[in-house]
C-alpha cells in the first residue's frame, strides 16, 4: 500500500540542497550540478504517474538524479569517443522513475558526516561574517559567495576597483583570522 505522496511544489524547498549536495560531490561543477537537478525535477514531473509511493519522494528523486548523472558521464565519454557504459536499465523515457523506486537505495553513506561538518563550517562562516563591518561583509559576500564580478560590484556600490580590492583584502584577513580562532 502506498505510504508516500508526491508534492512537486515542495521539491525545491525540501530537496534541492540535498540533491545539489549529492550531485556536486559527483560532478564537481556548479553549473552542471544545477542543470542535472533541473533535469531531474523535469523528469520527475513527467514520470509522476509512475510513483508508487513505496519509497520516499527523496529516494525517488535521487534515483532519477543518479540516472541523469550516469547519462551525463555517458555523454562526456561518447563525446571523447571512448564510451563504454553498460546499462541494463529500461531506456524508454516514459518509464523513467518506475524501475528506480524498487532498485535504488537512499544514499545515506556519502553525505551524513559531510553535511554535519558543512553545516558547522557554514555557521562559523556566518558568525565571522557578522563580525565584519557592514560594507566589508557586503562586498565580501558579493564577491566570494554570490560570485559577482568586480565590475558589477563596483558599478552597484559606486566604488573603484582598487577600493574594492582593499576592502576585500581587509575582509579576507579578518575572515581568515576569525575562522582560525573559531573553526580550526
Amino acid at each position: 500500500m502506498p505510504t508516500h505522496v508526491i508534492n512537486p511544489k515542495s521539491w525545491v524547498d525540501r530537496y534541492s540542497d540535498y540533491l545539489y549536495n549529492y550531485t556536486i560531490t559527483r560532478v564537481s561543477n556548479h553549473e552542471i550540478a544545477q542543470d542535472l537537478i533541473s533535469e531531474t525535477f523535469l523528469a520527475g514531473l513527467k514520470s509522476m504517474k509512475n510513483f508508487k509511493g513505496e519509497a520516499s519522494e527523496r529516494t525517488w528523486l535521487i534515483s532519477i538524479l543518479k540516472r541523469k548523472i550516469i547519462d551525463h558521464y555517458r555523454k562526456i565519454n561518447s563525446n571523447k569517443g571512448k564510451a563504454e557504459v553498460r546499462m541494463n536499465y529500461n531506456n524508454e523515457d516514459d518509464a523513467e522513475g518506475d524501475w528506480m523506486e524498487e532498485r535504488v537505495a537512499d544514499p545515506f553513506d556519502k553525505t551524513a558526516e559531510d553535511t554535519i561538518e558543512n553545516s558547522e563550517l557554514g555557521n562559523a562562516i556566518q558568525n565571522c561574517l557578522k563580525k565584519l563591518p557592514e560594507k566589508q561583509a557586503t562586498i565580501f559576500e558579493m564577491k566570494t559567495i554570490l560570485d559577482y564580478d568586480t565590475e558589477t560590484i563596483c558599478n552597484e556600490l559606486n566604488i573603484t576597483a582598487s577600493n574594492l580590492w582593499v576592502i576585500i583584502h581587509r575582509a579576507r584577513t579578518a575572515m581568515a583570522s576569525c575562522l582560525e580562532k573559531n573553526w580550526l
Binding site: W11, Y20, F41, T115, G122, R172, L179
Partner: peptide
C-alpha cells in the same frame, strides 16, 4: 579561506537558482 568558502558554497544552491527551479516546476 578560499577552500573553506568553496566548501561552504559548494553544498548550497543559491536563492536565485532555487527560484528558477520553482518557476520551472
Amino acid at each position: 579561506l578560499t577552500e573553506f568558502m568553496n566548501k561552504e558554497n559548494s553544498f548550497k544552491l543559491t536563492d536565485a537558482a532555487k527560484k528558477a527551479l520553482k518557476t520551472q516546476i
